[in-house]
Design a protein around this nucleic acid. Structure first.
Length: 803
DNA sequence: AAATTATGAA
């Protein structure tokens, strides 16, 4: 007993010499060895086992061990193994193979260690099994240890061993190490090529995979079904149907079209490349369709937006195919439900997953989080997410995206901060999901920080989605120059990149540049899409380019075949509202072929406010309020109009309504950044530490503007005398944006613009004040509110006083 | 005596 105890300790990798011997608290083999009790079936069910019991020679035992492994009864095999003499390499190989094949990777590696320790010599047959286990564990550490040992014993040139090494390195994500093994091996066979081809495909580098496949064929190696399966997977990644069809031809030519895995890969490839018809054609040819094939077809329909087909396919799967949908079927259907906005359908899938016992299932749960997030049911997304016991990166990503999609930016940012303390490392998808939250909420310096992190990870140049969001981030943080620099530095700009930069100039009021960029985009051969026109028309409306706006609106359908959507009508309504032509605005809504949304009525409301038409404002507000959404802005706007008109009873009424609906006025908040600090000012709240300094600056400014007509005084004369005695809440004097500008003036460098970010729209009084300040101080002031950036220069604002 | 590469998934 003492001897075995010592042996176990000795095997522990932490103990180097007996001098440091320490009795372990747990037996290192407790997990793998003694747990297996004698299985009942051993004597009765297996004839070979009964043979052993009659006359157990070593060879019959090995024979029995092999049959246990082959039939998958690993428990029997392990029990037998512990009972027999296992000093020879072969016996160990069998048991390690069995463990690795069963997916018991941890155990396989641990048996390998024990094998070495107990003095059996691993040979060229052992290592492929061990390496398979290492790749299954996704453990580079274990894999490298094995590799080191291989070199030591001189087995690192064996083709089988090298092939396993390539596959292991690729699977754990060490592409370069895998490539090195491939390059340096003396002889490469078909499996070596297949391993590197499937390795590239596994890590998502479809292009390299296809290049290797081509090279292999060029040097005269005939591809087999493994090559084709990986190659088709690579085409799916790249969305490259041309290459996919080429491989399909080769598949037929080489007689692999009846292989069910090849067929499934073909369905997948056509589905992902946007050709549902071809996918269907391949699918129909399969005689005995298995669940995987059905699922691939369902996925094909979903990714091609054939939602009803995807559901009827699942129905047929059950009725014709006599197969039950599994978790993956559900994972495939959920995005369809999300895109159709079919909340109930998704919920019933969720319920069915629970009933059928598919949960917990990390991928399915992640798909549910994603689904609920996209349907706007953030509560349910959170509910599912909280119940995931071992969250992985994808599930974190899904939850962050759900927060961002539902406008819960600060929750998303909190969760993103938390991730850094978990064992998972954020990836490109994490950053792509979180960046919009940065764009909405954070300061320029925080934006720069996250950009630096992303650049350091090497994601900026390789990932177009991330680069596009970075452009948006800088634009939203007020740094248009850097946004432009990022855009100019992009290697492959897609239509989103162009749309983003056009929108960036739009929100900063540089309409001419937006238009110029739109034409540059077309010259570069990029076809504008719906969003391009949203950017362009927004720009025309923000910059007050009425004629141009109409021209582009008309050319959408005429020259580009794009039907104007509700967003485009919204932009046009803003444009009309700007001209003050309320009749036209009303007519425009009436003649619109689409049902007006809350955004449309909100636009009319804004126009009515500018034209001071309180009746129309009421009509617009009534419509907007009937279409449930966050009505805070709507109420505040109307309330302000009533206040100006002196209709205090109506102001009170709105106040009551808001309380009833549980809405609270969003507190105005403005931030200004100095070198290392973000200074936050809140409306009415004079508790900021810098308030004394701000008061001094405000005093100087009001003295300098005293001889001129004061904006607020001017406004107040419009009110009736009696109303002046009323205490008007939230006086513009107490608006945070003025304080932030004043503080910015003295705490930032002369000559540089003062950059202020504000969470809600700037009011007219503050807008006037900012214009004046820019004139008397000769400094550029940039105020980014929730919609646009106001560039105040020499007493004017780019927005032309309409926003 | 025995080995390596593999289809559907967020």
């Amino acid at each position: 007993m003492a001897a075995t105890l010592l042996l176990h300790n000795f095997n522990s990798p932490r103990i180097v010499s007996l001098n440091h011997f320490e009795p372990p608290k747990t037996n290192p083999f407790a997990v793998t060895r003694p747990r297996f009790s004698k299985p009942n079936q051993l004597q009765i069910t297996h004839s070979k086992a009964s043979n052993i019991l009659a006359e157990p020679t070593h060879f019959t035992l090995i024979d029995a061990l092999c049959s246990f492994i082959d039939s998958g009864s690993i428990e029997n095999a392990l029990y037998l193994f512990e009972e027999m003499n296992h000093s020879d390499t072969f016996t160990w190989n069998i048991i390690i193979k069995g463990l690795a094949h069963k997916g018991l990777f941890k155990e396989a590696v641990s048996y390998f260690r024990r094998m070495e320790f107990e003095g059996a010599r691993p040979d060229k047959f052992t290592y492929p099994f061990v390496l398979k286990a290492c790749s299954g564990l996704l453990s580079l550490k274990e894999g490298e240890k094995v590799h080191a040992k291989l070199i030591k014993v001189g087995l690192d040139l064996d083709v089988y061993v090298c092939n396993s090494l390539i596959s292991m390195y690729m699977k754990v994500g060490c592409v370069e190490l895998g490539e090195n093994v491939f390059k340096e091996m003396p002889v490469r066979d078909l499996v070596s090529w297949n391993s590197i081809i499937s390795g590239y495909q596994f890590i998502g580098d479809g292009l390299s995979s296809l290049v290797c496949l081509r090279e292999m064929v060029l040097i005269g190696i005939r591809p087999d079904k493994f090559s084709f399966i990986s190659g088709l997977g690579a085409c799916s990644i790249e969305g490259c149907q041309r290459n996919g069809k080429e491989i399909h031809c080769q598949v037929i030519k080489n007689g692999f079209e009846m292989d069910f895995m090849v067929e499934t890969s073909l369905i997948d490839m056509y589905g992902k490349c946007g050709n549902a018809v071809y996918a269907e054609r391949v699918f129909d040819m399969i005689v005995n369709k298995n669940t995987v094939a059905w699922n691939a077809m369902v996925a094909g329909y979903v990714s091609n937006a054939c939602f009803s087909e995807s559901f009827s396919c699942v129905k047929k799967m059950q009725e014709v195919g006599k197969l039950r949908p599994d978790g993956i079927t559900m994972i495939n259907l959920l995005p369809a439900c999300a895109q159709m906005g079919a909340l109930l359908m998704g919920k019933s899938i969720h319920a069915s997953a629970i009933r059928k016992g598919f949960l917990p299932h990390i991928v399915l749960e992640t798909a549910l989080v994603d689904f609920y997030g996209r349907c706007g049911t953030l509560k349910l997304a959170k509910h599912v997410f909280m119940r995931i016991s071992e969250k992985n990166l994808a599930s974190w990503n899904a939850m962050i995206a759900a927060y961002v999609q539902n406008g819960q930016y600060s929750e998303a940012l909190d969760m993103f901060q938390d991730i850094w303390y978990k064992s998972v490392k954020p990836d490109a998808i994490t950053f792509a999901s979180i960046l919009p939250a940065y764009a909405e909420l954070t300061s320029l310096s925080e934006g720069r920080q996250i950009h630096a992190v992303i650049t350091k990870l090497g994601l900026t140049s390789s990932n177009t989605i991330i680069s596009n969001t970075i452009i948006y981030l800088y634009a939203k943080c007020g740094d248009l120059q850097t946004a432009r620099r990022c855009f100019d530095g992009m290697f492959c700009k897609d239509v989103v990149s162009w749309n983003t930069i056009i929108m960036a100039y739009a929100i900063h009021g540089f309409g001419r540049i937006s238009i110029q960029l739109f034409h540059e985009m077309i010259e570069h051969g990029i076809k504008p899409n719906k969003s391009s026109f949203v950017s362009l028309l927004s720009s025309c409306s923000i910059s007050g380019m009425v004629d141009e706006g109409w021209e582009y609106f008309n050319s959408m359908k005429r020259d580009y075949g794009i039907d104007p959507g509700i967003e485009h009508f919204g932009c046009m309504l803003d444009l009309i509202g700007r001209t003050g032509n309320l009749d036209l605005a009303k007519r425009f809504i009436e003649e619109m072929p689409l049902v007006p949304t809350a955004r449309i009525w909100g636009s009319l409301l804004a126009a009515s406010r500018k034209a001071n038409d309180i009746e129309l404002a009421e009509v617009a507000a009534k419509h907007a309020l009937s279409l449930e959404h966050d009505n805070t802005g709507c109420y505040i706007l109307l309330s302000n109009m009533y206040a100006e008109a002196g209709r205090w009873e109506d102001v009170e009424k709105i106040k009551t309504l808001m309380i009833q609906e549980g809405l609270a006025k969003t507190m105005g908040c403005s931030t200004v950044e100095t070198d290392y600090k973000i200074h936050r000012f809140v409306d009415q709240d004079r508790s900021n530490a810098q308030m004394n300094m701000v008061n001094d600056v405000m005093g100087i400014i009001s003295k300098m503007t005293a001889d001129k007509e004061d904006a607020y005084a001017h406004r107040i004369t419009k009110l009736k005398r009696t109303d002046l005695t009323r205490k008007r809440p939230n006086l513009p004097e107490n608006h945070s944006v003025r304080w932030a500008i004043s503080f910015g003036l003295i705490s930032t460098e002369l000559g540089s613009p003062v950059l202020v970010r504000k969470n809600i729209r700037i009011c007219e009084d503050c807008h006037n004040v900012a214009k004046k300040i820019s004139k008397i101080t000769k400094r550029e002031i940039i105020v980014g509110d929730s919609k646009v950036f106001h560039h105040f220069q020499d007493g004017n604002c780019f927005c032309g006083d309409y926003w």
